[in-house]
Amino acid sequence: MERHYGMDWLRVGAFALLILYHIGMVFVPWDFHVKTAHPIDWVAIPMMAANSWRLMLLFVISGYASRALLSKGAHLGSFIASRSRRLLIPLLFGVIFVVPVQPWIELAVKYHYPHDFGWFWLHDYFRFHRLHGIALPTWQHLWFVGYLWCYTLALTVLIASLGWLRAQRGFDWLFGARLGGVLIVIVPIVWLLGVDTLLPGARETHDPLHDGVAHLHYFPGFLFGFALARSEPAMAAIGRWWKPAGVVALLAYGVVAAIEWRWPGNTMPAHPWGVTFATARVVQGWCAVIALAGFADRFWNYDTPWRRTLTEAVFPFYIVHQTIIVLVEYWLLPLHAPPLLEFAVLLPATVAGCWAFYLVGREIGWLRPLIGLRRHTREIPA
C-alpha cells in the first residue's frame, strides 16, 4: 500500500496538540502533578475542544500504521518483534530515567516529601509500593506506549488465530459492506455510548488490568484504524461525510463548552445536563476523528522535506515532553509569577527541550533505540 502522508501530518499535529494540552493541565483546575498557584476555570473550555478525541485519534492512527507495516510483507513474528523493540525499549528507558522526576515533584509539592531526587530515585522509586497513593515505579504519560504494545500483541494473536487472509477478508467485509456509508460515523458513536452506559461513571485508570472503559474505547479505535488502512469504501465514506461530521463535532463541542461554563471544575451538573454532557462529548469526539481523517486525506496527503524529520521526532518529543513541563513549572512556582507569564515560559521551554532531546539523541547510535528511533543512522533533512 502507498504511504498516506496525510496520516503522517495528522500524527504530527495530534502529538503537537497533546504537548499543548499537557501544558494546559498546569493551569486548569483538574488534578495534575504540579499546578500553578492560581488555576483558571475558563481554561477548561479550550481544553474541552480536544479532550474527547485526542487519544482516540492517536490510537486510530497507530492502527492505520500497523496495517501499513504488515502490508510491506512482514511476517507476524517479525512484526511483533519489531514493534516490541520500538515500543518496549523506549518505555523501559522512560520509566527508569525520564519519568521519575514527575512523581518526585508531585510528592514534594503535594505531600512535602523531605528527600532530594537522588534519594528518591535510589531508595523509594523502585520499591514497588504506593507512596501517598502514587504507585512506584510508574509510567505516567507513557501509559499510551504500554497500551499500544498490548493492542499490537492482541491484534497479532487475533490474526494468527484466524489466519492472515481470513482476517483481511473479515475486516474488508465489515468496512465495505457495513461501514461504507454514513454508518462509519453512527456505529462507533453507538458503541461508545453503549460502553458509557454499561460502565456509568467509570474513569480511566491507566492500569492495564483494571481499565475496562479505556480498553473498550481505544482497542476498537485501534482496530478501526487497522481496517481503515486498506478499505477504499470506508475512506470514500469518510470523504463524503467528513464535512457534516465536522459541523456536528463543533455543535456538540458548543454543548460541552456551555455546560462546562455553567458548572465549572468539579461541580456536578444538574439532571439531565450530566447525561447531556457525556453524550455530547462522545458525539464530539468521534465526529472530530472522522472530520480530521477526511481533512487530512483531502488536504494533507503530500510530502515535504520536513515531513520525515517531524514524523521521526514525534516519539522522542512524546517521551520527554511531560517531564519537561512538570520540571519547568516546579522551578517557576517559587517565583509566584502570573499564569500568563508561566505559560509564556512553559511553551518555548518545552518545545526547546523536546528538540534538544531529539537532536542530541538521534546523533548517538546507542541512544537512538532508547528514545524510539531506529537503530541505524541516516541523513535527515534540516
Rank of each mutant, 00 (worst) to 15 (best):
R3N: 04
R3L: 03
Y5W: 01
G6Q: 11
L10R: 09
L10P: 04
R11I: 00
R11S: 00
G13V: 07
A14T: 00
A16Y: 03
L20E: 07
H22R: 09
I23Y: 06
V28Q: 13
K35I: 02
T36F: 12
I40L: 14
V43I: 12
W53K: 12
L57W: 05
V60E: 00
L69C: 11
L70T: 02
L76N: 15
I80S: 04
I80M: 07
S84F: 14
L91G: 05
Q102E: 09
W104T: 03
W104M: 05
I105F: 11
L107E: 12
H112V: 02
P114W: 00
D116Q: 09
F117I: 13
F117Y: 15
G118W: 05
W119P: 03
W121P: 04
Y125M: 07
Y125E: 10
F126E: 00
R127I: 10
H132A: 13
Q140F: 04
F144N: 15
V145Q: 05
T156W: 04
V157F: 09
L158R: 11
I159H: 04
S161R: 15
W164H: 13
R166P: 08
R166A: 15
R169M: 12
F171C: 09
W173M: 11
A177Y: 12
L179C: 13
L179G: 12
I186C: 12
P188E: 01
I189Q: 02
T197P: 07
L199N: 01
A202D: 03
R203K: 15
D207Y: 11
H210R: 12
V213D: 08
H215R: 10
L216H: 00
F219M: 10
G225D: 08
E232K: 13
M235Y: 05
A236K: 10
V248M: 15
V248G: 14
Y253K: 01
V256H: 05
I259S: 07
R262A: 09
R262N: 05
G265T: 09
T267Q: 15
P269D: 15
W273M: 12
T279R: 13
A280L: 08
R281S: 14
R281N: 11
V283T: 04
V283D: 01
G285P: 13
I290Y: 10
A291S: 05
A291E: 01
A293W: 07
D297G: 00
W300N: 06
Y302M: 02
D303M: 02
L310P: 06
V314A: 05
F315L: 07
Y318T: 06
V320F: 11
T323W: 01
I325K: 10
V326P: 02
V328F: 09
W331S: 03
L335P: 01
L335G: 03
H336C: 02
P339A: 12
L347D: 01
A352F: 04
G353F: 06
W355Q: 01
G361R: 08
E363Q: 13
I364M: 10
L370P: 07
T377R: 07
T377E: 02
